[in-house]
C-alpha cells in the first residue's frame, strides 16, 4: 500500500496540473517548483490542455507486476502542446494504427490497483486518439 505517494500527486495525475515559470513563461510538467529552463523558482499552478502528439511509443507485452491486468498495453511519450513531454499509456485505440506524430488527448483512467481487489484504485492520465468534438 502506497497511499500517501499516490494521494499527494492526485492533482497532476487526474488533470495534468503542472506549473508555469513566472520568469520565463516555460510550462512545466511534472511540477518541480524549479524551472528546468531558467532555474528560477516556479510554483505557479498551470493546467495543461491535455492535447499533444506522440513522440514515440511501444507495446508492453510483458507487463511489470501490478499491470498484468491490462496487458498488453501501449505506452507512449507524448509531446504536450505547451512543450513538456510525458510518459503515459495510450487507451481507446481503435483500428487506426498508432503512429509517431498522431494527435492525442488526455483522459483520466484507472492506472492500476494498489493491491488485488482490496487496495486503492490509482487514477491518472492516459491519452487517446483525439475525438472529433
Amino acid at each position: 500500500m502506497e497511499i500517501p505517494r499516490h494521494w499527494r500527486l492526485k492533482q497532476q495525475r487526474y488533470a495534468l496540473m503542472g506549473e508555469v515559470c513566472p520568469h520565463c513563461e516555460a510550462k512545466i510538467f511534472p511540477p518541480r517548483d524549479v524551472c528546468p529552463e531558467c532555474g528560477g523558482e516556479a510554483k505557479t499552478q498551470f493546467a495543461f490542455s491535455g492535447k499533444g502528439k506522440i513522440y514515440s511509443y511501444t507495446v508492453m507485452r510483458d507487463a511489470p507486476a501490478g499491470f498484468e491486468h491490462n496487458s498488453p498495453y501501449t505506452v507512449a511519450v507524448v509531446a504536450l502542446e505547451e512543450g513538456p513531454m510525458v510518459t503515459a499509456q495510450l487507451t481507446d485505440l481503435g483500428e487506426e494504427p498508432v503512429a509517431i506524430g498522431m494527435p492525442v488527448e488526455m483522459v483520466t483512467r484507472k492506472i492500476r490497483e494498489d493491491g488485488e481487489r482490496k487496495g486503492m484504485i490509482v487514477y491518472g492520465y492516459k491519452f487517446r486518439p483525439v475525438m472529433a468534438a
Binding site: 505517494r5 511534472p30 511509443y57 511501444t58 508492453m60 501490478g66 505506452v75 511519450v77 510525458v86 492506472i111
Partner: peptide, 24 residues
C-alpha cells in the same frame, strides 16, 4: 517511479520507445 514506472513502463519498454523513435 512517479512518472514512468506508475504508467507501467519498464526499462525494456524505455528502450522500445527509444528504438521506435530512432528508426523513425
Amino acid at each position: 517511479y512517479d512518472y514512468e514506472g506508475v504508467q507501467g513502463l519498464s526499462e525494456t519498454g524505455q528502450a522500445g520507445l527509444l528504438m521506435q523513435r530512432y528508426l523513425y
